[in-house]
Computed example of a mutant assay.
Amino acid sequence: MSKRSDLLDFALLGLLHEGPAHGYQLRSRLNEALGAFRALSYGTLYPALSGLLDRGLIAQSTATGKPVTAAKSAGRNRIVYEITAAGKETFEDAARRIDTAAYEDDGFGVRLAFFGRTEADVRLRILEGRRSRVEEQLEIVRANSSRSRERLDSWTTALQRHGEESTEREVRWLTELIDAERRHPTDPGPQP
């Protein structure tokens, strides 16, 4: 299974942990809230849901509460998905897991979206890992900029500076989140 597929499963279980939803709602919420899935097609979504169904991590019914097999013969009813006990356990295990994917761009955004269901020590380790990864990227950007600055036109130089400033901003933001987490580990998170 690919990292993106694992990430999609985690995101779907996380969304269904909040309550039942049908495919259109899940796709919309993934597209709106989780940048990693902005271009998610139904051709990707429904096979992922099918895999979660096959593994017993989610269940399905119709909006009217009828079993899906009975609803198909009565006409087209919207299928609603909900997380099972096994799905909740799988989601909670994944939320506790810390691996390099949790620090990467797509993985970090998805994990951050579900920090409300993540233990404080895990949140802190993921934030610190992400900051370390972004600091490494910043050093690379700075080194590349200083080596090539004389050869570039003003537009390309401005673009490089923008990238450097954006990365510096992310390091500052992550540092603020880490500091807040250390001060108040039971706090539900930063205020909007």
Rank of each mutant, 00 (worst) to 15 (best):
141 V>H: 08
119 E>S: 08
119 E>M: 02
123 R>N: 13
135 E>K: 11
117 R>N: 15
140 I>H: 01
117 R>M: 10
125 R>A: 15
146 S>Q: 12
126 I>M: 08
145 S>A: 04
147 R>E: 12
110 V>I: 10
110 V>A: 13
125 R>M: 03
126 I>S: 04
120 A>V: 07
124 L>F: 10
133 R>H: 11
122 V>T: 15
158 A>C: 02
126 I>R: 13
122 V>K: 05
153 D>F: 06
149 R>W: 06
121 D>T: 12
128 E>S: 04
134 V>R: 01
127 L>H: 05
159 L>I: 08
121 D>R: 03
116 G>C: 03
127 L>Y: 04
150 E>W: 06
119 E>H: 06
136 E>D: 05
114 F>Q: 10
131 R>T: 04
140 I>A: 10
136 E>A: 11
135 E>S: 14
141 V>R: 09
133 R>Y: 09
110 V>N: 09
113 A>D: 06
116 G>M: 06
123 R>T: 01
153 D>R: 02
143 A>S: 09
121 D>Y: 00
119 E>Y: 03
123 R>G: 05
118 T>F: 03
130 R>H: 05
114 F>R: 04
155 W>I: 13
113 A>I: 01
137 Q>L: 14
126 I>G: 01
127 L>S: 09
111 R>S: 15
134 V>A: 06
139 E>C: 00
145 S>H: 12
132 S>H: 06
121 D>H: 10
147 R>G: 09
125 R>N: 09
139 E>Y: 00
109 G>H: 05
126 I>W: 06
159 L>K: 14
151 R>A: 13
147 R>M: 07
124 L>S: 11
155 W>T: 14
110 V>K: 02
134 V>D: 07
152 L>W: 10
157 T>R: 14
157 T>N: 06
151 R>F: 10
109 G>R: 11
134 V>N: 12
151 R>K: 06
154 S>A: 15
149 R>G: 12
155 W>M: 15
159 L>G: 08
149 R>K: 13
139 E>H: 07
122 V>D: 08
135 E>H: 02
122 V>Q: 08
152 L>K: 11
139 E>L: 02
133 R>Q: 07
114 F>D: 05
150 E>P: 01
121 D>P: 01
115 F>L: 14
116 G>I: 11
128 E>W: 00
117 R>W: 12
